[in-house]
Design a protein around this nucleic acid. Structure first.
Lengths: 324, 324
DNA sequence: AATCTGCCGTGACTTTTGTCAAACCGAGGC
DNA sequence: GCCTCGGTTTGACAAAAGTCACGGCAGATT
């Protein structure tokens, strides 16, 4: 039983000795709280306190292994069907569809660091998904990493823009960041040309094109899509692209079912990475949560932009049903 | 309540869908088993089973953060006192002294991967500690890593030798391995010279010397030390070195309190890395568990061979008391 | 020196989790 | 169509973990 009459000084507890010891016995040696209490000669309640302290201080890390998601039935199917390097499928209940976006983002944030290596140059697109992903990314330095903004900036009603997306990803990963200090879309092709010829901007584009991995989402082609709400495209323009067979938006460019770039009125006015360049990469990471985007995601895969896919169960099923 | 009359087929459970979903709800979303049972419409006992499955399959990873050990009171003190880059101190109870070696080895095995980066060339010494460490190391590939054997091989009564140590470390980390295919000690200096001049051996030595990080333990200078039991040194030789002020053995070489190499009868007959070279490295990782080795560890630190130290609480205290 | 204050540690109680044998289901063989 | 077999699910019970209000020591304050 616990000896009475002695009490540890604050520093002994804060100094971590006992807390770490307790955590070790519990989590590494697998003793239960009673055994630990006996061994350390304190009450079990105290053991509970120490363990709580250990958790509060972040000493205990619990996570689900990537294999749980990459080894998932649907993940394997996606991988084989579409020739991906890996797929990461988040589980999803019928009755919690609204949560899936958050889960996919969380999963992608957990997975991303393990897909990157020192020396990588990561091209980052923009969108709510990417923005949220950056938010959830836990700070973990990757040596000699550079983040490159793939699309010009564009203010949105939601408070994120391409430069914020890339900056945040860079910050979390301790990476250098090359931003594109231009709007994503300009009113006239002439102005876009002028800007692209500007030495500073040209240099930024040149730097941008040195990426070896990419991180992006695909937009859907509906009127409530971000392409429209952010002002990149007007409704008329969207309608025109739809008429040409557009099923998705990738880095601001419209693509058809086969993933081919649909050249149109916007391209000359757009400041963004070229889609042909997007195919030349070591790894292309697509994050896509909602089943409604299955078609767009399929197009991106068929177009050859994707090697790694993060998605939810429902979208995975939709893709396997619709593609193949 | 759980609906009766339906039951999952084996493949549905083995197929991981439900198991991963359950694990997610429990570990990521923090629901308790009752809430999960309700949500998934199964009994709580089933939830327990699923969670057990998830753990059995290795989907759940629980570990103590490195900060628990590097941020430890004694770790900070060691770091500051001896100017180390980092120290990793394992907690230790009075009544479990015999376990500390296992803990330190485990801690070192957990820490090591995070100290290595792609492209590194890791020199590995030998000894029971290093051998055990290799055993405990969990398989995790580090790109473009090369492991280099720092000391010639020597059969021991315990079944490990330097080549086994380095090979095992390399295997676990998915690294290339350069072994030294010679005995650690030869009967005559002349033979050692001859061997060193042999093209093949010379090339191995040359490769060995390209290390940028080192992993080693220090031996103590007692009659039951491995230096004697493995036949590297005779008792007479040991006695001679003790007379010269030897307090420890590092990669087969004797060092004094200041960590200086004590040149003696063995050196010309020895096939091992040069101690001067051991000082020229990005990182030197010393693993040492028993308090009796505090003196030897101190010497190694004073000698400038160490930047990272893994040890137990008792040895840490001994070092802080004895050195400074 | 007495008092105060802020943690620390504890026992009793509640909630959560783990165990196990028995019931149950579906698939295939007779 | 019935039966057996292997794995799944479950309810009842047991064990473990979490909570909380109170008692107590140590160092600071007056």
């Amino acid at each position: 039983m616990p000896a009475t009459g002695t009490q540890r000084t604050p520093s002994q507890v804060s100094g971590d000795d006992i807390v770490v010891e307790t955590a070790w016995l519990y989590y590494e040696d697998g003793l239960n709280q009673n055994e630990i209490a006996t061994a350390l000669d304190v009450s079990r309640a105290t053991v509970v306190n120490y363990l709580q302290l250990a958790r509060d201080r972040g000493y205990v890390q619990v996570r689900l292994a990537h294999e749980a998601f990459t080894g998932h039935r649907l993940a394997m199917a996606l991988r084989e069907t579409f020739g991906l390097v890996a797929a990461y499928v988040l589980p999803e209940r019928q009755d919690a569809r609204h949560e899936i976006a958050a889960r996919v983002v969380r999963g992608a944030a957990d997975w991303l660091p393990s897909l990157l290596a020192p020396g990588d140059r990561l091209g980052v697109a923009w969108g709510k998904t990417i923005y949220d992903l950056a938010e959830r990314l836990e700070a973990r330095r990757i040596d000699d990493l550079t983040v490159l903004q793939l699309v010009g900036s564009m203010a949105t009603p939601y408070g994120f823009s391409a430069d914020v997306c890339s900056s945040n990803v860079a910050r979390k990963l301790g990476a250098a960041c090359v931003n594109l200090h231009v709007p994503a879309i300009l009113s006239e092709a002439r102005i876009a040309r002028t800007l692209r010829d500007e030495a500073l901007i040209a240099a930024q584009f040149e730097a941008m094109n040195t990426f070896n991995k990419t991180l992006f989402a695909v937009g859907s082609c509906t009127e409530d899509s971000h392409v429209v709400s952010s002002g990149v495209a007007t409704r008329q323009e969207l309608a025109w692209y739809l008429g040409q067979g557009a099923v998705g938006v990738l880095c601001g460019r419209f693509i058809d079912r086969a993933g081919a770039h649909i050249e149109g009125p916007l391209d000359a006015r757009m400041m963004a990475v070229d889609l042909d360049r997007m195919r030349q990469r070591e790894a292309g990471i697509l994050v896509s949560a909602e089943p409604e985007r299955a078609t767009a995601a399929l197009a991106a895969i068929r177009g050859g932009y994707v090697t790694h896919l993060v998605t939810g169960q429902a979208q995975a099923e939709a893709m396997l049903a619709g593609g193949g």
